[in-house]
């Protein structure tokens, strides 16, 4: 396969469980395709060179920078964005609820990246040392809230999840 400048290729992308067939140019970043082509603007774009972490999404279950990935590279992959956390009529995801409860955000610009970075680790976060947890989120920049609330929020999410499950049963 070769794709010349200006030409598009059809790729298959499963985003938050929904299969999309979309035409992309080779130079289109995954972050832009999620926002502009698919219309999911929850993934934020900060620095566009991998430093700030705002654009972090899950690619096949693992956090990665959508600004450092061409959409065409992810042909066939499963992407999870912040919109995939909470179903529309189901309230907030425990992690989102915890960010609200622990004051883990102010302006919210960095929040989608923090949430997607924390998603694979929040269940074991209560057992992680401060150093481990800080390292795990070291790739994310927040310029207003400060990190103490964010750490508490990630630590608190598992408890919220447990109490919700308890309420159901």
């Amino acid at each position: 396969m070769a794709l010349n400048p200006g030409e598009s290729a059809r790729i298959e992308l499963t985003v938050n469980g929904i299969a999309h067939q979309i035409d992309v140019e080779a130079r289109w970043l995954l972050s832009d395709v999620l926002r502009h082509t698919i219309g999911l603007t929850g993934t934020h774009v900060g620095c566009e060179h991998g430093v700030c972490g705002c654009c972090t999404v899950l690619i096949d279950g693992e956090p990665a920078r959508s600004c450092l990935t061409f959409a065409v590279q992810t042909d066939g992959a499963a992407i999870t964005t912040v919109e995939g956390l909470a179903a529309s009529d189901d309230g907030l995801h425990p992690l989102q609820e915890s960010f609200r409860m622990h004051h883990g955000l102010q302006c919210g610009y960095c929040t989608p990246g923090f949430l997607m970075t924390a998603l694979p680790i929040y269940e074991r976060a209560p057992e992680m040392s401060d150093e481990e947890l800080r390292k795990a989120i070291s790739g994310q920049l927040c310029r207003c809230t400060g990190y103490a609330g964010i750490l508490s929020a990630i630590r608190g999410a598992a408890e919220i999840e447990r109490s919700r499950k308890g309420a159901e049963s």
Binding site: M1, A2, L3, P5, A26, R27, L29, E48, H49, V72
Partner: peptide, 11 residues
């Protein structure tokens, strides 16, 4: 902050 156009090859 977007890459210049290039030809993409997928061997």
């Amino acid at each position: 902050m977007k890459p210049a156009p290039f030809t993409y090859h997928r061997p």
